[in-house]
Amino acid sequence: MATRTVTIASAVGLHARPASLFVEAATNTGLDVEISKDGDDPVDATSILGVMALGAKHGEEVTLTADGDGADEALDSLVALLSRDLDSE
C-alpha cells in the first residue's frame, strides 16, 4: 500500500475550489484513494463532503493512501496538487 504525507498549501485550506480539484483528481486515478488528518479514521478521497469535513486548514498535514497498480504515481500527482496554492490559480 502506498502512503504519502503532504502539507496543505492553499491559503483557505482544503475547501470549496481546492477540495473540488482534489476530489476530481482523486476520482480520475480510478483507484481507492483515502485521505486522513491527525491519525483520524481515513475518508474516501472521492467524496467532496468527506474531504471537506476533514476541515484541513492551510499548513496542516494530511495523509494519503492508495492500493493497486500505479498507486505510487497517482499519490505523487495528488501530493503535487495539494502542495500548490490552488486558490490563487
Binding site: 475550489r17 477540495a19 473540488s20 476530481e24 474516501d44 472521492t46 467532496i48 463532503l49
Partner: peptide, 16 residues
C-alpha cells in the same frame, strides 16, 4: 460557475 460546479460535485457524493 465554480460555485455551481462545486455544488454539483456535492450532489454526486456517494456519502449522501
Amino acid at each position: 460557475q465554480q460555485i455551481l460546479k462545486a455544488t454539483a460535485l456535492m450532489a454526486r457524493d456517494k456519502g449522501l
